[in-house]
Write a protein that binds this DNA or RNA. Structure first.
Length: 130
DNA sequence: TTACTGACGCCTT
DNA sequence: AAAGGCGCCAGTA
């Protein structure tokens, strides 16, 4: 099924509308999912977005992570891009913090990239499916 | 106000 | 197979 460009969200139920209310909700949801990422595991921006029904808004997930910095219990370091690259490292206090935190959880990071990413990948769409 | 940018990712060439 | 295009949308210039 080739999607016709991916214009607009299919909104499989989830309204990621344009009103401030759902935006707020979206951010909250992102943080909520992020909080559930098990220690020692990682996920991607796109996966979280997809789980929330906004598969094309992966960028907004990244933006949400900005705000996450404010809340101390959001493990933003466990969210990387779809290839396992620590694309958000630059936004950490010391940029090396992200990698350091991951390594502290036993995740091997080489050249700004999570080693064994595929095995450590935690997909909310699957893990939180039930 | 319009234009560009970006913690992204899928699609077409 | 690799590279470029486009959509997403909040914030900034």
């Amino acid at each position: 099924m080739k999607r016709e460009k991916h214009k607009g969200e299919p909104k499989s139920g989830l309204p990621i509308a344009k009103n401030a209310d759902s935006q707020h909700n979206f951010f909250e949801n992102v943080w909520d999912v992020a909080r559930q990422i098990p220690k020692g595991r990682v996920t991607s921006y796109g996966s979280i977005a997809a789980y929330l029904g906004a598969r094309s808004s992966a960028r907004m997930v990244g933006w949400a992570m900005n705000g996450a910095h404010a809340r101390k219990d959001i493990p933003a370091h466990r969210v990387v891009n779809r290839v396992g690259l620590l694309s958000g490292r630059a936004h950490f206090s010391p940029p090396e913090k992200m990698q350091a935190l991951l390594e502290k959880e036993g995740i091997e990071v080489k050249d700004h990239q999570v080693v064994h990413f595929k095995e450590l990948f935690w997909d909310p769409a699957i893990e939180l499916a039930l």
